[in-house]
Nucleic acid binder design. Sequence first.
DNA 1: AATCCGGGGGA
DNA 2: TCCCCAGGATT
Length: 345
Amino acid sequence: MTPASADFPALRRALLTWFDARGRDLPWRAGPEGRRDPYRVWVSEVLLQQTQVVRGRVYFERFLTAFPTVEALAAAPVEAVLKAWEGCGYYARARNLHRAAGTVAREGWPQDYAGWRALPGVGPYTAAAISSLAHGEARAVNDGNVRRVLARLWGERQPTEPWVQARADGLLDPARPGAWNEAVMDLGATVCIPKAPKCPECPVAAWCVARASGDPAGFPAPKVRAAVREVRAVALLIGDPERAVLERRGGSLLGGLMGLPTEEVRAGEAEADALARLSARLGAVVMGELGEVTHTMTHRRVRLTVYAAAGGPAPVPVAAEALSRLDHKALRLHRRRAESLFALG
DNA sequence: AATCCGGGGGA
DNA sequence: TCCCCAGGATT
């Protein structure tokens, strides 16, 4: 039952036949198999890192409209690139994509796996995807779909990265590497899904150890995740939702994005002390509390108390800047407060 | 090998 | 709520 090398040709035929009939029709799959437009493939692959396809589609159209070519992307200021990425998360992807576009515009397109892998933001997965899809290179992708599909085929509950890559390399169809990669990912996204996999629809069910075990959803075992950290912070809204004082965030968390001036409430510190630190830093006067918003990211839960304030730096138009969801929530408090005051009056 | 980096879909 | 998503960079 375990997929043996001797079975690979039949297994490949079964999956590729299914793919040719049932593969997803996606906007970045334009052009002949193995010769896809490298720019569209590249943008889509970066956009889809840890982002679901239904969501990626929207951002793909938005991004390609704003930056139709790699030259246009390279020529744009990074702030414009972040604006197009606004709300999509993992903003280092946008910064790296912009930086790499400069390299490509200057030096030309990478021609193989190693060339792609050298660009910032292009790791093993993305380099394998682009080189197989756009150049026809025999490189096997290893993503969340591949990991799950192969763990189930082989009945492996704890697949390590090297384990998955080795199986993916061996199973890759050398004649149609790009289509093969897309086929495995489509299978993982539409049939071999995390919960309640649709084994009766699966073209390779006959080879699947997990299916034979009677509990395919038990493969692979769930990953243990770090606990979500609780964070408290205070922010100042100087101005209104249309024009407000904004600061550019540095570091890795929301780096490059603009946001309301914010200070974290340190462990053991009173919120009032953090607020005093914040208003002193800006040279602003706190008028009153606007309310509280909570925002959950992958590994932290932020509780942000927002205060109306006056003075400090000059407000800027908000619409032109790229802000995180957290800051958009904070800005909305202003309107809510105005509405409640109106209702009371 | 572990952690961090956003945000949302779906159960 | 919890799990996962066409991962990459850093340590």
